[in-house]
Nucleic acid binder design. Structure first.
Lengths: 156, 156
DNA sequence: ATACTCTAATGGTCAAAGAAAGTCAGAAAA
DNA sequence: TTTTCTGACTTTCTTTGACCATTAGAGTAT
């Protein structure tokens, strides 16, 4: 795996845990990954730009830091973020359910839609004799497809 | 946490308790924080300047002291202070941004206005072949003009 | 008592050192 | 060729220390 990608996913893990904001030390992070500090700037520039839905602030000097904030998005933007960033190639039924219930809570999908979508990716619906791994891959694709449709319906 | 930040929040705690005014001994405070006395001056200069809404008076010699007073101003008064006292004949883009972000934080301009104003004075907006010094002069005039407009809209 | 001087106790200034982060051109890798 | 990575150099913010300025009060001379 490319170094930049490792750093990117490391930061995204932090962002997933710690709400939508992380603060980190450029030098520490560089040391952790055994790379040049400026590598961190490269990752920020290529993966955490406003185009990617993030803003960064930083401070130099003693006690300096870099703060990365995931930008507040419209509902559709958030759906597309999930499609493009959060959902990878594979999702378990449990993960699907968790995502759907979050979305329902946030009002991004309706109380009618949520259970429909959940049933689409349920083990029951996918009860055909293929490996589990394939089912999870299908679930990811189904979720992306459904969410993209909803985002488009609501306009970006 | 940065030493300066610790001292800043210590003083702000005192200010919150004791009305809007504190009196302290530079040397005692420095001793308490185990730092050079001049560090206190640094904190005053960078966090308790008139720009930040404070004025300080002090006295040397036996029984000397430093008094910090939080200035109460209406929003419009503060804007006019900026126009008449703080903003001179010239402002860099960075200074503009700093001022605007402070004003946004203080609720004197809205989160919608701030980026609009920032973009007006941005290097991108002013990308014409004239000397930098002239652009900075324009920025100062633009900022004064915009802030005066907002102050007038909100009433003094 | 008054005025003057000396001194200890304060606070102020500024330049230099230290501690991060940013930039950018070019090397390396894909 | 494009993307990734590095290193030298730059900029910004913090902290310190040496030296300067001011003040109250004690001591002293008139």
């Amino acid at each position: 795996m490319r170094l930049s990608d490792s750093i990117e996913s490391f930061i995204k893990t932090l962002l997933a845990e710690d709400s939508s904001e992380v603060e980190l030390k450029r030098n520490e992070l560089a040391e952790y990954f055994g790379c040049a500090p400026s590598q961190i700037n490269y990752v920020l520039a290529t993966r955490f730009s406003p185009d990617h839905g993030y803003v960064t602030e930083s401070r130099r000097g003693g006690g300096g830091y870099i703060r990365i904030v995931r930008v507040v998005q419209s509902g559709s933007q958030r759906l597309l973020y999930l499609v493009n960033e959060r959902i990878g190639d594979s999702l378990s039924e449990e993960e699907c359910i968790r995502i759907l219930s979050q979305l329902k809570e946030q009002g991004l999908i309706s109380a009618q839609e949520a259970p429909v979508m959940a049933s689409a990716v349920s083990a029951k619906a996918l009860a055909v004799p293929i490996p589990e791994a394939l089912k999870d891959a299908m679930r990811a694709r189904m979720m992306k497809s459904m969410l993209t449709t909803i985002a488009a319906r609501n306009g970006v």
